[in-house]
Every structure is written in structure tokens, then in C-alpha cells.
Write a protein that binds this DNA or RNA. Structure first.
Lengths: 214, 214
DNA sequence: GAATTAATAAAACGAACGTTTCATTAATTC
DNA sequence: GAATTAATGAAACGTTCGTTTTATTAATTC
């Protein structure tokens, strides 16, 4: 009939966020009811409205948190030097690790955009676009420096992001491969895809030149 | 109050399928109501149940149709010769064309799997797995023949499928690039990714050999 | 041209939805 | 230790959901 002993707003909000991410990732935003979410948290449905004014605000808040964490993580992982290949390596490794560690939240952020109203959608897309621009810049810098061989910067950036985000579709921890092994393989594919000049091709080009110079 | 003049079951069913794909792709399966769908078709909600026993059966039917068309299209596009690189080229080109031409249906098939009951889900996943196996086989054949350079066949197959299916996320017809141009760029990326022996690397290897042989 | 079948409209069903209202209790403030 | 605030439970609100029932009409069959 009332507040229970030991209850605490801070802990309750965190529990709501966590349960919401799990449930929405599994069943989809529209399919999850406020009662179902409340039951998962161990609380009445009305209590949820102390923390989030509406169901959509809850969704928006989860997505915003996810995107801001992603930006912050990349900010912390970005190397100081400005070698484009090193930056590309850091970007891919950070992206894979971040998303693998947050599979459910990533699913929510990628699949539920259509459930947001216009304003909420715009604010999330702004964050996403800013993040994607980081990769485009790296690719363009690398191409300009002659270290990467790229047809179309924008298109290649999208292809890489789709490829490395797709890891969460099939990757399961505790299985055949570790995160580090997966990351190593995807890094190798990324470097080939972009024609990064650290590979066999580069050696052969130099070998050709040396042999001809004799 | 009753059947209207000129109504026809065959045409109505096709109209339901088409409207359902559009609406579900835009708003999501759970968010689309039977009344909304009926209104889009220009029919009463009850009429939908003459064609599909439940809402979920409608969804399942849309997905099954999509997956079967995909398999059939690939069957028709698969080259007769057994050069793995030629087969890989056909696979990627067919996949991109098929999905770009069916953006909405692809979104439905990729995003609404979680709305299916166990049996319906299993039947769709079976079709999907069979299709993905085609690519894995091509990659393995190519690697065995020494024409492709691949770390992990399964992992590379997933990466390629994620990459080329991702086209539908950003591609819009009537914009900067045509389907053929996009396909050409993605084909180039695929060939690099798999180290296909038709590229510069191969030429350089041969050049090295020739120069040394003098 | 009567009988049958296919296609639809209209209305209703119970269940469940997001949200609000209100009472109640634990914790905090002064 | 009284007053206030934060957190919650319980019940109810109006709406809408997927689906069913029933009646009616167009098309087809014989």
C-alpha cells in the first residue's frame, strides 16, 4: 500500500534502465508493457512514472545514454598521434569492444529509432552522425596521405560500420572466439578493405621498385 | 454492409501483403494495428482474417515469401562454371540488387524475427541459414583453390553479408549513385576483403617472379 | 434463375494498454 | 518529534487492441 522499507530512488532508476534494455532488446519496444517492465524490476507500474514521464522518454533516455557513452569511450581511446592507420585500428577495436560488451543496448539503439517522435529521433541521429563522421575523417586523411586506397569515403565508412557492428548479431561470449580474436580478424579485414599500406601489397610494390632499380 | 461490387480476393490479398510490408517496415510489427492495415488497403479489419488467420501468420507469410524469393533469385543467377571468384561476384551482385529492390521487405525480415513464435522463427531461420551457407561454400572453395585468402570462413561470410545487406540502410534510389555503381564499389571491397587473386597483389606477385627470373 | 459460395461490412467481445489519481509509509529536515 | 518530502502500492480511467460473430451482397454454378 505504500513505500517499502529499504527502497531507494537511485537504485530503482538503475534497475529500471537495466531491465528495460534487456526486455526491449529481446521483445521490441512496442511489445514491452510498463507492467511487464515493472514486474521485472519488482515494483508497481506507477512507480516507473516517478523516473520517466512517458514510455517514449524512457526509450529516448536509454538511447541517449548509449550514444553518449560510445562517444566518450572513443574520446578516451583515440590515439594522440595522427597516423591514420593507427587511428583506424583504434576506431575499429574500440567500436567492436564497446558494442560486444553492450549487445542489448546496441540492439535497442539500432532497431528502435522508428519508435521515437521527431524531436527525440533528431537528437539521437545527431549523435550518431557525429560518431560516423569520425570514421569518414580517418579514411579521408588516410587516403590523402596515400596510406589508404579508397574508392568512395562515405560509402566505405558505411560498409565498415555495418560490418563491425554486425559482430553483435552472431557473437556470443563464452564461445569459440574471444573478443580479442574476433577483433584481430575484423581488423585484418578492415585493413584489406581499405588497402592499408602495411600489408603484402605494399611490400611487393617496394620489391618491384627495388628490383627494377638494380 | 456487405461485399462491394468489383471486389476480388486475389487482388485483395496482394494489396494486404504490399500494405503490410510498407507499414511494418516503417512502424514495426507491434506498432501496426489490423485496423490501420485494413484502412490502408481500403477494407474492414475483419476482411483481413479471410486471408490470414492471425496477425502473426501474416508476418510469417511475408517473411517466408521474401526468403523464398531470395533463394529463387540466387538459383537463377548462380553461374554455371565453378570459378569461385565468378560465383562470389554473382552472389554479391545478386544480393545487393535483390535487397535494394526490396528495402521494405528486407527490413521486415531482418527486424521482426523476435515477433515470431518458436516454430515460425525456426522455419525462417532455416531458410536464412541455407542461403548463408551458399556464401560460406563459395569462400571455402575459393580458399581451397588458393584463389581467396581468408582467415576464418564463417566469420568472413558473416562480415560480407552484414556489409552488403547494410546497403539498404543508407541507399536511396534516385540519388547520387545507381545500383550498378554501388554494386561495383561493393564488389571491389569484397574482392579486397577476401584477397581475391585478380587484383594488384596478384600482378605484383607475378611481376616479382618475372623480374627475379631474368 | 435458383442455389451456393466468396467477399465483405458492421458491430461487438474481453483483454490489455499507457497513464493518472490517491492513499500510505519511510526517510529527512528543522 | 512534528512537518515535509520521496517512494511506492493499489485501483481505476478511457482507449485501443486482436479477433469473432453475424448479416448482407456479388459472383458463380448448375
Amino acid at each position: 500500500m505504500a513505500r517499502t522499507a529499504g527502497s531507494d530512488g537511485g537504485r530503482t532508476e538503475a534497475a529500471i534502465r537495466e531491465a528495460a534494455v534487456q526486455l526491449i532488446a529481446r521483445h521490441g519496444y512496442e511489445a514491452v508493457t510498463m507492467r511487464q517492465l515493472a514486474a521485472e524490476v519488482g515494483v508497481q507500474a506507477a512507480a516507473l512514472y516517478r523516473y520517466f514521464p512517458t514510455k517514449e522518454d524512457l526509450l529516448h533516455s536509454l538511447m541517449r545514454e548509449h550514444m553518449e557513452e560510445l562517444a566518450a569511450t572513443w574520446e578516451g581511446a583515440r590515439p594522440d598521434n595522427d597516423d591514420p592507420v593507427a587511428r583506424l585500428t583504434s576506431f575499429v577495436a574500440n567500436h567492436i569492444r564497446f558494442h560486444v560488451e553492450r549487445r542489448h543496448a546496441t540492439h535497442v539503439s539500432n532497431m528502435e529509432l522508428r519508435s521515437l517522435s521527431r524531436d527525440n529521433l533528431t537528437s539521437i541521429l545527431k549523435l550518431r552522425t557525429a560518431y560516423e563522421k569520425e570514421l569518414r575523417t580517418i579514411l579521408r586523411d588516410g587516403a590523402d596521405a596515400g596510406l589508404l586506397d579508397i574508392d568512395d569515403t562515405g560509402l566505405t565508412a558505411m560498409a565498415i560500420i555495418q560490418m563491425i557492428t554486425g559482430v553483435i548479431v552472431w557473437f556470443r561470449p563464452d564461445e569459440r572466439l574471444s573478443v580479442d580474436e574476433v577483433t584481430a580478424t575484423y581488423l585484418a579485414m578492415t585493413m584489406r578493405l581499405t588497402g592499408a599500406k602495411t600489408n603484402a601489397e605494399d611490400r611487393h610494390v617496394r620489391q618491384d621498385a627495388e628490383l627494377r632499380a638494380r
